[in-house]
Design a protein around this nucleic acid. Structure first.
Lengths: 153, 153
DNA sequence: CTTGACCTTCCCATCATGGGAAGCCCCATA
DNA sequence: TATGGGGCTTCCCATGATGGGAAGGTCAAG
């Protein structure tokens, strides 16, 4: 099948399929005489795997590891499990932080709520409520985008 | 204080401070006669908040709104409150998505022995549960759909 | 006055992704 | 058979947030 079919069937855009090929995440596709990339159902399978893993927040590097493990018949479950658990730990931490932030903002909304009060203690409030000396360690970024781009260690 | 001081005290790198100024997230800093940027403690407060918000995955656009919310002391209290509450709703939604994701991964990890046997179901889970197969084989999908695209404003 | 640590601007790279242009290719239909 | 529209190719550019580094000016301590 052509790349467009593979894209719609896998949920990975054609652009991304070419990109994944280019960076070596997937092998170079077979070509037709006229140069079109040609994909087999198995390739779609792999692409689905990739799409799913991306959805779950795995970085490309991690997906590469997962693919290696997946394709390796002698793979070790422990490796895969460790990878997944690392993601879970990241996620739990993020959730806690986001809840902090949501609570803070909610308080802010209440304290600044709708009247003519001239001086909402917003700045101080947020700074206190967000805790964290903030000059402290630039701790490993815990946010949506950074966990994606953090190169797997 | 100089930009280096502001950077270490706020946890935002000097590079980023200049960038935030350039894109208008923070106002152009005062300059000394020789052209050095000069910061007051209040500026550090703002930078700290930015650092915190970035840490939590807010986009620059969102942080810009939050800062407006902060600085807009009393004039449009109702609007300000609405904005804050919208952000809170956003946050709660993000939290839900993250929890979904974490739960899924945790389930996968939990059912994986973590030993040397190559039967860890994490890989199968990744392989199978592609969201939205559009009338295809499996539909046990978990569907966080566009979670990773949440960079919306 | 020298030295080294700081500051300035400017340019480039990153990662994952999308947009779009220019130019082939394939198939259905008139 | 010719044609048109849509799919494919490569190539270049842009994004957002961040870092690296060069070339050069500045400050403060020795």
């Amino acid at each position: 099948m052509n790349i467009g079919d593979a894209a719609t069937r896998s949920g990975v855009s054609a652009k991304m399929i070419r990109y994944y090929e280019q960076i070596g995440l997937i092998p170079t596709a077979a070509r037709t005489v006229s140069g079109y990339r040609n994909y087999a159902p198995d390739d779609v399978h792999v692409l689905r795997f990739i799409a799913r893993a991306r959805d779950l927040g795995f970085s490309i590097g991690e997906i590469s590891e997962l693919l290696d493990l997946w394709r390796d018949k002698n793979r070790h479950s422990a490796d895969v499990k460790a990878l997944a658990q690392a993601r879970v730990t990241d996620l739990r931490l993020k959730i806690v932080h986001l809840q902090d932030m949501a609570d803070t903002l909610e308080n802010l909304a209440h304290s600044c709520g709708g009247n003519e009060r001239p001086d909402c203690p917003i700045l101080q409030g947020l700074e206190v409520a967000t805790g964290e000396p903030a000059g402290s360690t630039t701790h490993q970024a815990v946010n949506f985008s950074s966990f994606k781009k953090r190169t797997a260690t």
